[in-house]
C-alpha cells in the first residue's frame, strides 16, 4: 500500500528525528489484521488502584450490592497482527460509573456524593494461551465533555505496555460529536474501536454483551517509547 498524496507531519517529524522505521508491509505477507489504534489514556487511569482488581467490576469483594448500570459481558481476544493469540497479556479496563464518576482522586474525590460506591471502576484480566479475556462491567455512559460512552483499555505484557485504547459503542449518537472518537481521522481506525453491545438472550435483568478483539502491533517497544 503506497500512498503519496502528502507526508503527514508526524511521519515527517519522526523521520527527521530518526526514531522510527516506516516499512510499509503488505497485509497478506505476514499481517492479517490491522492493529487496534492507540487512543489517549485520558486523565483518569486510577491513581490509587482499588483493592479488588478482578475482572468483575459489578461486585466489589464480597459485597452484596451490585453496581448500578446495565450489566455488560465484555469478551474478546488479544491477538497479534498475524492473528496469533497473545498469552500472558494483562488487559486492564477502567471507565466511569453509571453516574459518570471515575475512580480517581481528581474525579471521585470532588464527586464523592455522586459516585456509585459499588462500582469497581477498574479491572484486570490476564490471558491464557487462547488470548481470551473476559470482564463483567457496566455498559459505558457519557461523561461531561465526552458524548461517546467508552471503556478505557490498556494491554500489558510483563512490565511492557503494548497498547492503550478505548472501546466505543457502535451506533451511539454521541460518537460523531466526541472529540476523541470523531477526532480519529482514519476511518478504518474508527471502525476498529467499535463494539456491538447486544442484548443477552433471555436475560431478565437486561444484560448485554460486547465482543472486542484487541490487535497489538508488531512493535510494542516502539509504541511504549512513543507514548
Amino acid at each position: 500500500m503506497s500512498q503519496s498524496i502528502h507526508v503527514p507531519s508526524r511521519r515527517l517529524f519522526l523521520g527527521a528525528l530518526g526514531t522510527a522505521l516506516f516499512t510499509t508491509r503488505g497485509l497478506f505477507a505476514e499481517q492479517l489484521l490491522y492493529p487496534s489504534p492507540a487512543m489517549t489514556e485520558g486523565p483518569f487511569y486510577p491513581d490509587k488502584l482499588p483493592l479488588d482488581q478482578d475482572n468483575d467490576l459489578i461486585i466489589i469483594k464480597d459485597s452484596t450490592t451490585p453496581a448500578v448500570g446495565i450489566i455488560t459481558h465484555l469478551t474478546g481476544r488479544v491477538l497479534s497482527t498475524s492473528g496469533e493469540p497473545i498469552k500472558d497479556a494483562t488487559v486492564e479496563i477502567w471507565q466511569c460509573d453509571a453516574n459518570a464518576v471515575y475512580l480517581h482522586t481528581r474525579d471521585s474525590g470532588p464527586k464523592a456524593e455522586q459516585q456509585d460506591k459499588h462500582f469497581q471502576g477498574f479491572g484486570r484480566f490476564t490471558t491464557a494461551s487462547t488470548g481470551e479475556y473476559r470482564f463483567r462491567t457496566i455498559k459505558p455512559v457519557p461523561y461531561p465533555g465526552r458524548p461517546s460512552p467508552h471503556i478505557h483499555v490498556k494491554v500489558k505484557r510483563g512490565d511492557r505496555e503494548l497498547l492503550t485504547t478505548q472501546i466505543f459503542i457502535r451506533g451511539h449518537e454521541g460518537n460523531a460529536r466526541d472529540g476523541v472518537y470523531a477526532g480519529t481521522r482514519d476511518l478504518v481506525d474508527r471502525e476498529l474501536v467499535l463494539a456491538d453491545f447486544t442484548p443477552v438472550k433471555d436475560s431478565k435483568i437486561g444484560e448485554v454483551r460486547a465482543n472486542f478483539d484487541i490487535v497489538v502491533g508488531r512493535t510494542p517497544d516502539e509504541r511504549t517509547f512513543q507514548r
Binding site: V7, R10, F28, Y34, R185, L187, D189, R227
Partner: peptide
C-alpha cells in the same frame, strides 16, 4: 505532535480521509 498517540504510520495511513480508508480496505 509527538505526544499524540501513534497512528500506526506503518500501515500506510496518510492522516485519514476516504482515500486512505479505501486503500486500507482494498488491501483485503
Amino acid at each position: 505532535v509527538q505526544a499524540q498517540p501513534p497512528r500506526g504510520d506503518r500501515e500506510g495511513r496518510v492522516g485519514g480521509g476516504v482515500d486512505a480508508a479505501i486503500n486500507r480496505l482494498m488491501a483485503y
